[in-house]
Design a protein around this nucleic acid. Structure first.
Length: 455
RNA sequence: GGCGACGUAGCCAAGUGGCCUAAGGCGGCGGUUUGCAAAACCGCUAUUCCCCGGUUCGAGUCCGGGCGUCGCCUCCA
């Protein structure tokens, strides 16, 4: 069965068919590392992870590129304000992203290119655009001349006339047209810089993605993903420069995920309205966050409230409970009926909420079998397959604590009881417990502060 | 102002012309289990899909209008 996805470029569903038969290139527009990753980012990247896993499940080999844009106005501004080096700021946020992604069981990208590693190639591309007449230099900066690229607006559905009317921001005096965008920015006093044919400066936003995606995946490549908020201007501009420079289509399928909302507003770094991924992961299990996100379709804006994660946590508990109440199995036979439904839902523009509903259907059927004294091996092995493809970390889906923790907690209980016995002068029983524990290898010491043990 | 998305049970949320007398989760209610509880499990929980018209043999699903919410229009995942 073919996968059908919504392609922003066509504003319609399309059957996905990659350039190469068995190999798919995906470019996920990653973070500009000016700030900490929040739940909204995680929604986008977690969805990318599910698309990737599903394509892998369907037998494709995936090259997955996710960039870090590590030089830009905001990074410079913010590092100044915080009084730290711009590279240190970027590294910090990048690491925080990587740690959160790992906890969320998001598969690592094949490569994580950074803008600053591609300055040479960026300069080459800017030169090419000048040579081809699509870009011009002005005061040490280089701008892409939007009116020269006739397809401008094809992704976002905007046209230059409409844009002119809606123009709200004061234009840079060096630009011919207010919508011309910087390919290269001249250095201002005290800013980081690289040498270029136009003097000291740094890459503009947008150009790094065109360069790095083509570097790893070629042009055209299959899938470019990111948040809907990147459609304009970021992705529109990527298309313009890439297609102007190389004269071939840039990307075949553009897949955009909807924003995470908080109190009815988009969760955003700039408004300060966001929940950092790191803190959320300290409060909630990664699987409950994944479940919460997958229970909504990726193209619908999703409101965030703490109680939604509480709900997901409770729902997750049902999954854990079922997995634990059934014997472990290996290579069990799966229920083809369920697998077929699962594929049908996922093939329909990644309908993860429908796919997740199958998880609970399986659990209900499995529990019914358990109640009748049967062992639901088929339900369990099917469930494990679905959980795997949806990216749940199966080994985390256990309510069982690590044994070390468990032993400590058990000992605490035993020692508390024993303390009570000693207090009430039941020394014989207390001593007996101590001896029995010693036989098991636990050495008990009764100190003034209470009892401690060694193992 | 321009472009776009959406409005389904108490809440979250699938469903895009007939298997919908509308999935799934949370909550609520009833039951099984239990010394009692908790937990767990099972069952029930929208005659109806924002409102008003229209198309059609047939509409939550298509079209027009209205009301409301949200996103984008060079900070953005």
């Amino acid at each position: 069965m073919p996968l059908r996805v919504y392609n922003t470029l066509k504003k319609d569903y399309e059957i996905f068919s990659p350039i190469n038969e068995s190999q798919v290139g995906i470019y996920m527009c990653g973070m500009t590392v000016q700030d900490r990753p929040h739940l909204g980012h995680m929604r986008t990247f977690l969805f990318g992870d599910v698309l990737r896993r599903y394509l892998e499940y369907k037998g494709f080999e995936i090259t997955y590129i996710q960039n870090f844009t590590d030089i830009d106005d905001k990074i410079i501004e913010k590092s100044r304000k915080e009084g730290i080096d711009w590279r240190a700021l970027g590294d910090k946020n990048e690491n925080e992203y990587l740690e959160s992604a790992q906890k969320l069981n998001i598969k690592p990208a094949t490569y994580y290119p950074r803008a600053t590693q591609f300055v040479e190639e960026i300069i080459e591309m800017v030169q090419l655009l000048i040579e081809k007449g699509f870009a011009y230099e002005s005061g040490g900066s280089v701008y892409f001349e939007v009116s020269k690229f006739k397809g401008y607006g094809k992704l976002s559905g905007k046209n230059l006339e409409d844009l002119k009317e809606s123009f709200r921001i004061e234009s840079d005096p060096g630009k011919k047209n207010p919508f011309d965008f910087a390919l290269w920015k001249a250095q201002k006093e005290g800013e980081p810089y690289w040498y270029s044919p136009w003097g000291k400066g740094r890459p503009g936003w947008h150009i790094e993605c065109s360069v790095m995606s083509a570097h790893f995946l070629g042009q055209p490549f299959d899938i470019h993903m990111g948040g809907q908020d990147l459609i304009f201007p970021h992705h529109e501009d990527e298309i313009a420069q890439a297609e102007a420079a190389h004269n071939v289509q840039f990307v075949r399928y553009w897949i955009h995920s909807a924003p995470m909302l908080l109190k009815g507003e988009k969760m955003s770094k700039s408004t300060g309205l966001y929940f950092a991924a790191k803190e959320l992961l300290e409060q909630y299990s990664p699987e409950s966050i994944r479940l919460f996100i997958l229970q909504k379709h990726y193209r619908s804006p999703a409101e965030y409230m703490q109680e939604y994660l509480d709900e997901a946590e409770r729902a997750l508990y049902r999954i854990k409970n079922f997995l634990e109440s059934t014997p472990s199995i290996e290579n069990g036979v799966v229920n083809e009926n369920y697998v077929e439904k699962f594929q049908r839902f996922m093939d329909d523009d990644l309908n993860t909420p429908a796919a997740v509903s199958l998880i609970f259907d399986l659990i209900r059927e499995g529990n019914q079998k358990l109640a009748n004294g049967e062992i639901p091996t088929e339900e369990k092995s099917t469930l494990l397959l679905l959980l795997e493809v949806l990216g749940f970390n199966i080994s985390n889906l256990s309510t069982k604590k690590p044994e070390v923790d468990l032993i400590k907690e058990l000992m605490e209980v035993i020692l508390d009881v024993r303390q009570l016995l000693r207090k009430n002068k039941h020394f014989q029983l207390a001593d007996e417990i101590r001896e029995k524990l010693e036989q098991l290898g636990f050495k008990i010491k009764d100190t003034k502060e209470g009892s401690v043990f060694e193992f």
